[in-house]
């Protein structure tokens, strides 16, 4: 190998090593940013799930299971944060994305449950409203057609038994 060829080879090795060495912090910084963004997203989703769970009026067995799953996701976020603090950004990112996936699935399940409960509520309330309305109409009809005329007849019967007497001294009707 000629001298200038050796020189070019050394130069190339030096350049490549420098490039690779510079790339490591960039890659690490990228992993750190990804992990940080994933943790933030997971935190936001956890808050959203908690808001959904707070608004649920009845906690049946399904909702209790979803609450347990939410707690598992919370634990994953905590592990992601711990790993982030220890500069294990790749593991941190994996934990955070795992939490995000789990929370997305929980959000889907809660949404479908709320939707079906709302539909059931609408049906029940409509039924109660219609029945109450019908009851009121039937009662009004009965009152106007039967009870009130009966009361009026009774009153007339009672009035017919009365005798009008004039008392000139006081002017009262007896």
């Amino acid at each position: 190998m000629k001298r200038y060829q050796k020189f070019i080879l050394i130069l190339w090795i030096f350049g490549t090593t420098t490039m690779l060495y510079n790339q490591i912090p960039i890659a690490q910084s990228q992993a750190e940013q990804e992990a940080s963004a994933a943790i933030q997203e997971a935190d936001e989703k956890l808050t959203y799930v908690l808001k959904l769970l707070e608004e649920i009026p009845n906690y049946d067995e399904d909702i209790r299971n979803l609450t347990l799953q939410t707690d598992v996701a919370r634990q994953l976020i905590k592990e992601a944060k711990d790993n982030y603090a220890s500069s294990n950004f790749t593991i941190s990112y994996q934990k955070a994305t795992g939490a995000i996936l789990q929370l997305d699935s929980i959000i889907g399940e809660i949404d479908s449950k709320i939707q079906s409960k709302t539909q059931n509520k609408i049906v029940v309330l409509t039924l109660v409203g219609v029945l109450a309305g019908l009851g009121a109409i039937v009662f009004s009809f009965l009152f106007i057609s039967k009870i009130y005329p009966w009361y009026e007849n009774k009153k007339i019967e009672e009035y017919s038994k009365l005798e009008i007497k004039y008392d000139n001294s006081r002017g009262d009707v007896k």
Binding site: Y59, I63, R64, T67, L68, D71, R74, K78
Partner: peptide, 11 residues
């Protein structure tokens, strides 16, 4: 060591 937990309400 943070002590945290999400709990369902008691029936």
């Amino acid at each position: 060591d943070t002590f945290e937990k999400i709990l369902s309400p008691a029936t």
